[in-house]
Amino acid sequence: MNTPPPSPGHPPPGHHPAEDALLRHAAGTLPAGHALVVATHLRFCPSCRDGVRTGETTGGAILEDMAPADLSPGALDRAMARLDTAAVAAHAAPPVRFQGVALPAALGALLAPRWRWTGPGVRRIVLNPPGAARAERVWLLRVEPGRALPSHGHTGWEAACVLSGGFTDRTGHYERGDVAETDESARHRPIASRDEPCICLIAWMGPLTPRGVLPRLFQQLNGM
């Protein structure tokens, strides 16, 4: 669902997670928040689903090549004894619909009931995915049309997936389903598109480094 940039003036942005993120997602070794962002993007992106499948196939080959470990005595018997009591396959939890988008069920379970004021034209829902590191933050962020977030840098990675609307920063223009990933060297000032509110799932590691007094106040008030 990667719509092209709205005008030819924008360079083609990196709309997908980086290849190494897809591989680590398949491996199950991405941080919890980053994994949630990638899983959300996969809802929109058949190409990245194929990439994850390639990673999983790689995982299958690595598993098959593992030198077998010794099992404790009677391991097979214990497993066999449990077969009759093993429940039949549970159906996967249905995806949650949000803003017309089918989100991973895991994300739906994390949604808090209401948006909280975060700053002028900015509201958030704080998510606490299990397994997230202490320094990891995961938010749903809603920015009113045309509003900008304070300019800020990062002390760790950041990953965002647009759920509705769009935003632009110096790295490109992002719309529904697009992923923007930045690292600690990046400094940016995302601006929401003018047509509708921009809602993003955003995860980042480590404190942000806002520039200026008001942005710092904004940061302190919001635990960013």
């Binding site: 997602h25 398949a26 199950g28 991405l30 919890a32 994994a35 949630l36 990638v38 899983a39 996969l42 994850v52 999983e56 159906h91 996967a92 939890a93 995806p95 991973p104 069920a105 895991a106 379970a109 995915p129 299990p130 397994g131």
Partner: peptide, 12 residues
């Protein structure tokens, strides 16, 4: 993650 988050639910 205490049973709560699956990275990618292939059964979905």
């Amino acid at each position: 993650r205490r049973d709560a988050l699956r990275v990618f639910d292939g059964d979905d």
